[in-house]
Design a protein around this nucleic acid. Sequence first.
DNA 1: GTCATACTACTCGGATAAGAACTGTCCGAGTGGGGTAGG
DNA 2: CCTACCCCACTCGGACAGTTCTTATCCGAGTAGTATGAC
Lengths: 159, 159
Amino acid sequence: MSEGVEWAIHSCLNLTWLEPGEAVTAARMAAYYSLPAAYMNKQLQALARAGILTSTPGPRGGFRLARAPEDITLMDVVTAIEGPEEAFRCEEILRHGPGEHEGVDYRRGCYVSQAMRRAELAWRRELAGQTIADLRDTVERRRPSVPGETRAWFANLRT
Amino acid sequence: MSEGVEWAIHSCLNLTWLEPGEAVTAARMAAYYSLPAAYMNKQLQALARAGILTSTPGPRGGFRLARAPEDITLMDVVTAIEGPEEAFRCEEILRHGPGEHEGVDYRRGCYVSQAMRRAELAWRRELAGQTIADLRDTVERRRPSVPGETRAWFANLRT
DNA sequence: GTCATACTACTCGGATAAGAACTGTCCGAGTGGGGTAGG
DNA sequence: CCTACCCCACTCGGACAGTTCTTATCCGAGTAGTATGAC
């Protein structure tokens, strides 16, 4: 899985602690974790294309959450970065084997494909059941100082 | 995910329908699905290294199942091909962020990592709950002619 | 003092390289079987 | 006829290229704010 997923989730989480309507540039988001700024920009662009963030160019511009954290699931973020296609993609090798294959959709009929899809659905269901708001609440409960520190860092420091 | 996973599962399934102790060469396994023989050989080697298949060189050699289909889970096969590391690998970017990080294991402490791990465990649990024997039984129940046809193909035909 | 205007600095966005991983290919080490020569 | 030996064909196993995807970088289009000059 792409490393950008980790960056994206942490970034979305950090954005929940900023003042509503406040935009943060990709460069500062990257500096927070000492990551390459241009590549972070690329990941945030993917989130913007997916409708998770909104971007505004120019001075005082940057990225901010496009909707409430309660409406952003981890599945949304993963799909935005990794793409919509599933990890196990059935190439229908049965079609090139012996036997008749006219008009058969092995993506649905092949039992191997079904078994793999079942596992992948369990993964997706678990991701879809967790929202950015859930993560935010967990952190606020277990690490109460983090929200204030994060907000202060983005408000004051430059490096 | 690597395409070889699909090849590996189908190949293990086909091996369950052969005479006990009968070995099949990588070339014939590949020919069954019109796949590149050398690359199929590579995948079967990975299964042999993982202890799922046993290989015997020389004439009359080839691959055969190393243990009962009931004892081979889809998780075993996927791990043999893809490797043991998990799909989402926490790079601990929190370590490079502000705050103290001495002696903290963010792979366990980071809540983002925990959430992703939870989803991955659901995936692995689903895969570990399905064995090659389960697949074999399903096919035998829904496509009763397949086992005989497969055995016949490997016993007779060359191409 | 007020307003319009031009300029500058800043940000995203997409186009462009470098690196790694997956995919595909090739040849050598080792083995088993069959042919052959001798008893 | 039986047996021992040698040769050969066959198979796995690992080492070697080609291609695609991920990672990383750079520069241009567009915007907001500001300074400046005219009225």
